[in-house]
Amino acid sequence: MDNFEPKIVAFTCNWCSYAGADKAGMMKLKYSADVKLIRVMCSGRVDTQFVMSAFREGADGVMVLGCHPGDCHYRTGNIKALKRYKLLKKTLVQFGINDKRLKLDWVAAGEAELFQKVVNEMAETVKELGPLHLTGNVEQGGK
């Protein structure tokens, strides 16, 4: 288990969290190489199916990172993401996936240290949970 290198996909919004990750880069803040980013324009763009797809394709953990409430570049996209997240958490459990494997958080463009902290914490959490073994119905379900 010690050698387990989890695969974590983090959906990051262009304006806040992806910019926060860029700032972490500029500040040379080291974080787990297990976390890989996908840039979307808004966290509101993150379809629940993207999350399910990531799990199906082999992710052990998925993150959705957006702007803080009130700061969304698109006014309220992040709030839509939050609503979907709450529902998705419950759905995951029904599929036999520990809901700790999905994490939504807010990271502003200036919050490089926070970005480093949330992704490292997620990497630790997923490492402790170990590899995700999916049951058949997830592998067949959805797109």
């Binding site: 996909v9 996908i38 979307v40 808004c42 763009r45 629940t48 992710a59 996209g77 839509k80 979907r84």
Partner: peptide, 27 residues
């Protein structure tokens, strides 16, 4: 922003340059 695309239950809405297919491919 693509929020409508993420909400569309029939796959009718499409975000240019951030299509579902592109993001699935990226994943």
């Amino acid at each position: 922003c693509g929020t409508c695309v993420a909400s569309c239950p029939s796959g009718a809405a499409k975000a240019k340059h951030f299509t579902d297919e592109q993001i699935y491919a990226e994943i």
